[in-house]
């Protein structure tokens, strides 16, 4: 039902915009939204895999932050943007591995460890940016190392947008049609029974964490190397948490997670779009840009209200497993 309402709202909005401003405007807004969607959709899909196994990783934001900086460093060392994306992926996976170790073998409280990871991310990134580039706060990525998007008449199409839209195919395939996916879901549903039937609970959860971290890392690398072209402590600006909200909204369905990420991104793009409207000018002169930036976060809040109840989630979510 809520899916239908959302689809109708998006279509009606697109139709209204097309009527008022012409098809190019709609296409360019859609492209802006697709670009903004990547760093939410990719981590969200990774987090769906994570949560299927019963691990709620609230540290996504921290992982994305660290990966966004590691990616720029890797790109500069390798002299190539693609190397950088790989570096982001690997560093995201590595940080997630540490988190995974803490919440599996270490039996840590997932929420507290995740919140700690976010702190650590802020500190580590500020420290790294200063130690690597001697710059306090931010470092601009050299233009030659940035991933080149595809130029279309309505705007730029970023390659990873395409990847993000197609990623649910892979995620659903992994979760629903492989032995790994089946075992992972079993672990998320009942860790003790899985353990008894010979599944290595910790190892599986660790694998899911690493996979989720890799996707989050790719999302962070996309922000610094591709979309924004900046390494900075406030680059991610809550997108890790927005991704989590999308996951909660999705009820662990990767397609729904991507759809939710797209809705957030439309509002994100709309917030930037509205700022240059003529009627917004007096407001903009009075510091109004901050007010437009609230729009996407408010939309997530609305999304959360429409989220399914707890029953859609694995029983063991958030609980560390310990053999009785």
């Amino acid at each position: 039902m809520s899916r239908l309402v959302a689809a109708v709202a998006v279509l009606a909005g697109a139709a209204a915009l097309t009527l008022l401003r012409g098809p190019t405007a709609t296409a360019s807004l859609a492209l802006m939204a697709l670009a903004a969607m990547v760093p939410i959709a990719l981590p969200a899909i990774g987090e769906v895999v994570n949560q299927k196994g019963g691990v709620f990783n609230i540290g996504l934001e921290g992982i994305m932050l660290i990966a966004s900086v590691a990616a720029v460093y890797a790109a500069e060392q390798g002299g190539n943007g693609l190397v950088g994306l790989g570096g982001g992926l690997v560093s995201g996976a590595a940080v997630a591995l540490l988190f995974g170790l803490a919440v599996t073998y270490g039996r840590a409280n997932q929420t507290i460890a995740g919140l700690g990871l976010n702190f650590f991310g802020i500190g580590a990134v500020a420290f790294l940016i200063f130690e690597i580039w001697g710059a306090p706060g931010f470092h601009r990525v050299p233009e030659a190392l940035r991933i080149q998007p595809l130029a279309t008449p309505a705007g730029l199409l970023r390659w990873l947008s395409v990847a993000a839209v197609l990623m649910p195919v892979l995620a659903v395939g992994l979760l629903q049609h492989t032995p790994f996916g089946l075992r992972l879901r079993a672990v998320g549903h009942n860790a003790l029974v899985s353990d008894v039937s010979g599944i290595e609970v910790y190892r599986l959860r660790l694998a899911a964490c690493v996979l989720g971290g890799a996707l989050a890392g790719l999302g962070g690398a996309y922000m610094s190397l591709d979309w924004i072209g900046l390494a900075s402590i406030d680059l991610i600006a809550g997108r890790g948490f927005v991704a989590l909200a999308c996951v909660v909204f999705s009820g662990l369905n990767p397609w729904r997670a991507v759809a939710a990420a797209f809705v957030f991104s439309v509002f994100n793009a709309l917030g930037l779009w509205l700022q240059v409207e003529p009627w917004a000018r007096p407001l903009m002169a009075r510091g109004g840009s901050a007010l437009f930036l609230m729009l996407p976060y408010a939309s997530v809040l609305a999304l959360l209200v429409a989220s399914p109840a707890r029953e859609a989630f694995p029983r063991e979510i958030g609980r560390p497993y310990e053999r009785p």
């Binding site: 803490a102 039996r107 409280n109 460890a113 700690g116 500190g123 580590a124 990134v125």
Partner: peptide, 21 residues
């Protein structure tokens, strides 16, 4: 000449270690 946010780095590690039961 150490960045301001080193405090967060330290705090983050403390929290992660405290989460371990």
């Amino acid at each position: 000449g150490i960045v301001y946010e080193f405090a967060e780095l330290l705090a983050g590690i403390v929290v992660i270690l405290l989460a371990l039961p």
